[in-house]
Design a protein around this nucleic acid. Sequence first.
DNA 1: CGTCGGGTTGAACCTAGTCAAAGATAGTGG
DNA 2: CCACTATCTTTGACTAGGTTCAACCCGACG
Lengths: 252, 252
Amino acid sequence: MPAAKRLRRDDLPGLAGTDTDVLPVHRRACSRRRLVRGESLCTVGDSFRTLHVVSSGALKGFVMSHNGAVQVTGFQIAGDIVGLDGIGTGLHQSGTVALVDAEVFVLPFALCERWSQASPYGQHLLMRTLAQESIRIQRHMLALGTMRADQRMALFLLDFSQRYERLGLSRSSFVLGMPRQDIGSYLGLTLETVSRLLSRLQREGMLQVQGRSIDLLDFPALWRLSGALNPRRCMVLDPIVDAMGHLAVTPH
Amino acid sequence: MPAAKRLRRDDLPGLAGTDTDVLPVHRRACSRRRLVRGESLCTVGDSFRTLHVVSSGALKGFVMSHNGAVQVTGFQIAGDIVGLDGIGTGLHQSGTVALVDAEVFVLPFALCERWSQASPYGQHLLMRTLAQESIRIQRHMLALGTMRADQRMALFLLDFSQRYERLGLSRSSFVLGMPRQDIGSYLGLTLETVSRLLSRLQREGMLQVQGRSIDLLDFPALWRLSGALNPRRCMVLDPIVDAMGHLAVTPH
DNA sequence: CGTCGGGTTGAACCTAGTCAAAGATAGTGG
DNA sequence: CCACTATCTTTGACTAGGTTCAACCCGACG
């Protein structure tokens, strides 16, 4: 696997260059946007114009049913892409709000489309990103449909652990940015069950929990509980933003 | 909404034409493949080379967890696209098998990619299809995460009803091609619960069930149960294959 | 200091799962 | 054509995992 080419934001080449295999983002186009805790990036029904890449902080995505039920569909941290759901219809099908103060890159979708047309690599990357999102949701569907509450919780914690590790942070010690209610919604559980489960796992020595601070103590036990045989998950993509919020692409 | 341009398979234009806004499928490239009941179209881990469009019959898609648990992710009938999950990694992340004897069009993905590059419409259609798939799964996730068993069942039946109707078939009277076990897996329930629910809904007069034959009798009640306020679901895409298995595209 | 959002814990309840048995259906081979 | 078998389906009795309702605690913030 080739090493990722890391680009500081201020070093990004403009569109004028002949190298179309690089994300066509220059200083002006790739603006940033700051969000305060609770601010919403987009809501259901908004017209879709831009993708966002999380630079720092944490967001949650959610869908709503006609009768008002809310389901959290995922949590986005640095490097994650937000807004893909709008591509299909031109309208956002899910909402996204900041769990804590956050910052995102703004990628006008028209730019992505042009890039995608100019460069086979760009096209591939965009489609790959979309397809990866489907697979992520499918895996979560598997969890919701077949696993018990404690297994889902273990999976959730290990998933976060792995994502933080990929950003160069601790895989065993981290802070969950969201309240129990949101974790519950994501896992198809009530907030009380989430609280009870965390207490139980702590009692059983698998982790230490203090409010939103988590310390994972016994990875093998968590793997066993989650039903994963091997620690490494299958086939993860390189993040396109590192922990510092710098864009990075891996040509070819 | 413009009427769909329907193309009999034998009338399909070759690639030589200048109109790139038409699916670039000629007789040779668009082969068909017959599947007998139980035959698998692709399995997890297969390398991804082709998309398939269902022409007739019915298939199920499923994912497996490391420990062997299986979750049915969806059912595909005429007009549905199979195999999108392979785009992300080049390997199929989910398996697909025929529930009954079926026939599919074979679309070499390289062809789709070339088309997508030659035509903005093609690119848009491909991405839209991918994004629509995400949204479909997200909606199902909402069902798995927030709804009770009977609500999920009602939603499932109404979804099938609507899909059959779009193919020009009866919306109230149809045959489910799959066993209770598969319905259960799809809905995150056991086969016994599925059976009990169908019996109960029949007792309550909402439908008539005889093995796999379903007659929906009281749509308003089913809508109410499923939590949907309005019968029409939001924003459905035109099918690209009609009930006769003929390809159809809607330029612009 | 009081209020408010979030978190923990307990007890009662209920939905859906599990286990078990028997009835239907379709496919197969004599 | 019919008997035999395998698969699918229905139904019942019992159980368990999670929800609901409620009380209480904690820390932040006006």
